[in-house]
């Protein structure tokens, strides 16, 4: 039973459906082993924004504050999209890469484990 309600056919209003974000999709990004950023970062992004632009224009504004950011060897980075291993195509847009509304992107940067190895 999807809900206990007085009305037997009660249906809830989905508050975060994609049509409410003015053409954007919400994307969450998590940098593994870097808890200085307490949670995955949430962004409303145009679905045709290229993955390369996410990487070179958007993320440095936030993750760039971390001393590990400049040390990343992107050839070694491993990606997960919605818990599945994933290889992004930097030229293609987010949607064309399979990134959907409320998708979670996680990336691991081998050898980089935060401030003094504390995963911060």
């Amino acid at each position: 039973m999807p809900v206990k309600a007085i009305a037997p056919d009660y249906v809830g209003e989905v508050k975060d459906s994609v049509d409410r974000f003015h053409g954007n999709i919400v994307v969450y990004v998590n940098w593994v082993d870097h808890l200085m950023f307490c949670s995955a970062l949430a962004f409303p992004l145009p679905p045709d924004m290229s993955f390369g632009s996410l990487l070179s224009d958007l993320l440095p504004q936030y993750y760039g504050l971390h001393p590990d950011w400049a040390r990343i060897d992107w050839a070694q980075a491993r990606w997960e999209l919605d818990r599945q291993p994933f290889t992004p195509d930097l030229e293609k847009g987010l949607a064309a890469n399979g990134v959907g509304h409320k998708s979670v992107l996680r990336f691991t940067t081998p050898g980089l484990t935060g401030i003094d190895g504390s995963c911060t």
Binding site: M36, F37, C38, S39, L41, A42, Q61, Y62, L65
Partner: peptide, 10 residues
């Protein structure tokens, strides 16, 4: 001083 200027996933 460190500020997180992106919003967090909830």
């Amino acid at each position: 001083r460190y500020y997180n200027n992106a919003l967090p996933q909830l």
